[in-house]
Amino acid sequence: MQRLEVAFLEKAKELLSSGQVNRVLAYKKGEFCYDVSPAVFYSVEELENAVYNGFCGANLSKYLIQESKKEGKVAVFLKPCDTYSFNQLIKEHRVNRENVYVVGIECQGKFSIEKFYKTGVGFVASVQEDLDSVLVNGETKIDRNAVKLERCLVCKKQHVVYDELLVINEKKDGDLDRFEMVKKLEAMTADERFAFWKEQLSKCIRCNACRNVCPACTCTKCVFDNDDSQISSKANADSFEEKLFHIIRAFHVAGRCTDCGECSRVCPQNIPLHLLNRKYISDINEFYGEFEAGKDIAQKGPLTNYTTGDIEPNDFKGGNK
């Protein structure tokens, strides 16, 4: 896997020094091996700090909304899931495609540092990656799947939009079914589902991380920030508000959400927000035919489309009573 990082750095340097682009959007080293941040590099020297490893989970497409509107061309390294978001943004005219040089970069699943801690390894000073396993601190070998983000365990995505690919090893798809938990919830009784969501959503602190990180949340002014909307609020002053916020947010990205999983990754309280998005995705698939947002931009979005024979709102099967 270290070969990939070398190739990534070479490619970034080449793109910058050849003048093909004037800046590179990628990831920058942090204080530890796991706290990498998205960053823009303007020179080959600055690329010293660039990094690409299993902790580069952030979806760079979000930053392209602003970056692509600036002067000059920007090179970006997108993982398969990022390309879906980027494609969707192209469809919604939120990015300027001409200003972006997309390098589709290999991804074997990204890590969650909390999952490392759960295995009991303690402080993670270094991680050597292999295709199936990781070596922590040069001594403890852990199965790669044990430390992957949930979204990577179910990921079956391949790059959908790129100018060039940077893939050394073929990507292994996740084995798990992404709708498994949705189905489990549907099989619960209504009371159980209510209790589940009540407990989960009551943790919400309305930090808006899920909204601000979401590449589908591109409104210049969110309805929840707009005092004139009568629903703006800064805190969950009542249990109703957390439901309102999350239902409406998920609804607003329904049919546009590419299931990149960023909302769940960033939630400080670990609320499984992807389960809301996946419910919409699974409903759309069931009611209106298979649809994957961001995959094919020629296809009409499910909520901007209709057929005369659509299912009636009173007739869906729904979860158990």
Binding site: S37, V40, R206, C207, N208, A209, N212, V213
Partner: peptide, 8 residues
């Protein structure tokens, strides 16, 4: 640069 402007 990378700040999302969330309140976490």
């Amino acid at each position: 640069k990378a700040c999302l402007g969330c309140g976490t």
